[in-house]
Simulated scan of single mutants.
Amino acid sequence: MALGERAYDVRIGTGLIDRAGAEIAPLLSRPRVAIVSDETVAAAHLAALQAGLSAEGIESVALTLPPGEGTKCWRELERVTEWLLAQRIERRDVVVALGGGVIGDLVGFAAAILRRGVRFVQVPTSLLAQVDSSVGGKTGINSPAGKNLVGAFHQPALVLADTGALQTLTDRDFRAGYGEVVKYGLLGDAAFFGWLEDNAAAISAREEAALLYAVRRSVEMKAEIVVRDETEQGDRALLNLGHTFCHALEAATGYSDRLLHGEGVAIGCALAFELSARLGLCPQEEPSRVRAHLTQMKMKADLSDIPGELPGAEALYELMGQDKKVVDGAIRFILARGIGAAFVTAEAPRETVLSVLRDGLAGR
């Protein structure tokens, strides 16, 4: 990631957790790190990570948190920060975030505010985290008012994306992460989206070569955009394709297991393309193609795929008004003139958005 003095490497491949000690050692002023993970990820990967560190003479202490989106909250932020202070983590030390997007966001934010900024290393273990949340320096927690409304831009010192860890994911978590992969093709690379369609079977089977390419191309696209716009003043907002709808749906479902973030992104992308078609920006065939691929991957593609009750269209629209992308009171949508041709606009009429939501809810 070419960000001047904040530049860092994003390493992608198999076996990176096992050799984490050799990868992290050059960053350390003393041979000791603090690791924060969640209970599920720790059971699968913490021992391997600590063994890899020990092999290079690096001591480690670890804290495990409950899994799930609910962990991205004030209470757990305080817990992590106070624990790091109790471990006497200094500004020149390194904190390791081992886990998915929740752990990466939370631990990155704790590192940003601890002693006014401590370095941290992302070791993302979910597909969503490897292709999106671990790269780019966005950290934060959720508030009752909305998702990711409290946070900081704090770039990691290193990202180790071990694609071997993706083999341990449940099918649902893997598919949810794939929602972010699809997003990259939809927002800026029609050829990549075509490759995803052609390689759906290999990706679903988690074939190593297919996973490596999907993760690498997604990270390349994110890096290109972040370098142009690190603090989201312009182009970086493109990375939020599907997220305006997604964040409203996550709030409506209480940030619970009813809807995982990547599932919301996939549904949000389908809704964004439907809205684009209704506004005459792209042919109706485009949202149909998006939904067809999501269905091909056995993913959630419509509001009707979300279990349980949802509020009405007007209530969902109000939740969108709490999104970070609201500027001067206007909701900014990422819409598209076609697959691979997304753009940012505040020119989506309220009634058209409501019609898309009403029709989606009517299909439930």
Rank of each mutant, 00 (worst) to 15 (best):
N148A: 09
A62W: 04
A252H: 11
E286S: 03
I306P: 02
A51H: 14
Y255Q: 04
E232V: 10
A277M: 01
V226R: 02
S126F: 05
V326C: 07
D173C: 07
L196H: 12
G254W: 00
V61T: 13
A48R: 15
S355K: 12
Q50A: 14
A214W: 04
K325G: 09
R175Y: 02
D302R: 15
E274C: 08
A277H: 00
V33K: 10
Q50V: 14
H261A: 02
V121T: 00
A336M: 06
I12R: 09
G188W: 06
F343A: 08
T170D: 13
A252E: 08
L186Q: 05
L281A: 03
V118I: 08
D93P: 10
I225H: 02
R30T: 08
A22L: 03
A200C: 11
E5S: 15
A51F: 07
G280S: 05
A110W: 06
R116Q: 13
G68M: 02
V10R: 01
T163A: 05
V118G: 04
H293I: 01
K183D: 06
I89S: 07
G254D: 09
A112F: 03
A223F: 00
L354H: 07
E351S: 14
W74H: 15
G164V: 09
R289C: 00
E263R: 11
L166T: 10
I113Q: 03
A348V: 01
G164C: 11
F245D: 00
V159G: 05
L84M: 07
E76G: 03
I225C: 08
L84Q: 01
L27H: 02
T139P: 09
A200K: 06
L158A: 05
D323V: 07
A51T: 15
H154W: 14
E224Y: 03
V10F: 06
Q296W: 00
R206V: 12
T168I: 01
G146Y: 08
E23P: 05
A51S: 15
G140P: 04
G179D: 09
S288R: 14
L46R: 09
L196D: 09
V118M: 12
I35T: 01
G52F: 03
L166W: 00
L127T: 05
S29C: 13
G329S: 10
V94A: 12
G164Y: 05
V290D: 04
D257M: 10
S276V: 02
D162E: 10
V123D: 07
W83N: 08
V80R: 04
A145N: 14
